[in-house]
């Protein structure tokens, strides 16, 4: 709808410009107005030229940098998910080494029970829980959360993904997904006159999205009894 409206608006502006030519023509004959025109156009061009050095002086540190190579992190993420589905589980050390996999939280909880059950709340369907037993009984649960590569176009925003909220109470580990996050990006395309000679597509850049999966890696004391309940397919003991 907005596209139709904007096209209509463009058409109307075109008509307005044509009519300006048609009806304002007598004013163009004013013999002395050229001085004013030269002044106005000169000022306009002067201001625009002055803006060029200003543009190059602006600090660019706040901008979003695009990824130089997104293929490898995405491939690495897909490979990891494929391994999970095929029951090939990584260790925490593996996850730390994988390119494109980002650890977004690390927490330790004191155990208040000899058993551990799980409460995975709605919205956590994309979360894969891996449990690894420690070599000792230290009475603590270590939880690390990982997120796989998340891209839109060439922009990697994996590090902006919030970790889930995790709590351990009365032998129950609860996992709650963060509130829905909204990301807004602004992309500037070069003019088509430049793109023609720079082998660039001036219209719309490839903005395909690659959405992330989450991995919750839990390290539990050796003798802790684990009750996966009905969530056996989402919680894996490695």
């Amino acid at each position: 709808m907005s596209r139709v409206l904007s096209q209509l608006l463009l058409f109307l502006i075109g008509i307005a410009i044509v009519f300006m030519f048609k009806f304002k023509r007598p004013k163009f004959y004013r013999p002395l107005s050229w001085k004013l025109s030269v002044l106005a156009t000169g000022l306009y061009l002067g201001v625009l030229i002055m803006l060029v050095p200003i543009l190059y002086m602006l600090p660019a540190k706040d901008f979003i940098k695009t990824a130089e190579d997104k293929d490898q992190p995405i491939a690495s993420s897909l490979n990891l998910m494929n391994n999970l589905y095929n029951q090939h589980f990584p260790t925490e050390g593996d996850l730390d080494k994988l390119k494109g996999i980002y650890k977004n939280s690390d927490q330790t909880f004191k155990l208040d029970s000899s058993k551990l059950s799980f409460n995975l709340q709605p919205g956590t369907e994309n979360y894969h829980v891996l449990i690894e037993r420690k070599d000792l009984d230290d009475g603590e649960i270590d939880v690390s959360t990982y997120v796989t590569a998340q891209y839109v176009g060439e922009v990697n925003f994996t590090k902006r993904i919030l970790p889930p909220t995790i709590s351990v109470e009365n032998g129950m580990l609860s996992l709650r997904a963060p509130d829905r996050q909204t990301f807004e990006f602004k992309q500037l395309n070069v003019d088509f006159t430049m793109a023609q000679f720079n082998n660039q597509n001036s219209s719309i850049h490839e903005m395909s999205s690659h959405f992330a999966n989450h991995i919750i890696f839990i390290r539990v004391p050796q003798s802790l009894e684990i009750n996966r309940g009905v969530l056996g397919d989402r919680i894996q003991i490695i």
Binding site: V152, R180, Q181, F183, N189, D191, F192, I204
Partner: peptide
């Protein structure tokens, strides 16, 4: 132009600008 996509957890939108 405007592009947006999302899933249950997040939504992403990209606004494209140009002086063309």
């Amino acid at each position: 132009s405007h592009m947006s996509s999302g899933n249950g957890e997040l939504s992403v939108s990209v606004n494209t600008y140009s002086a063309s």
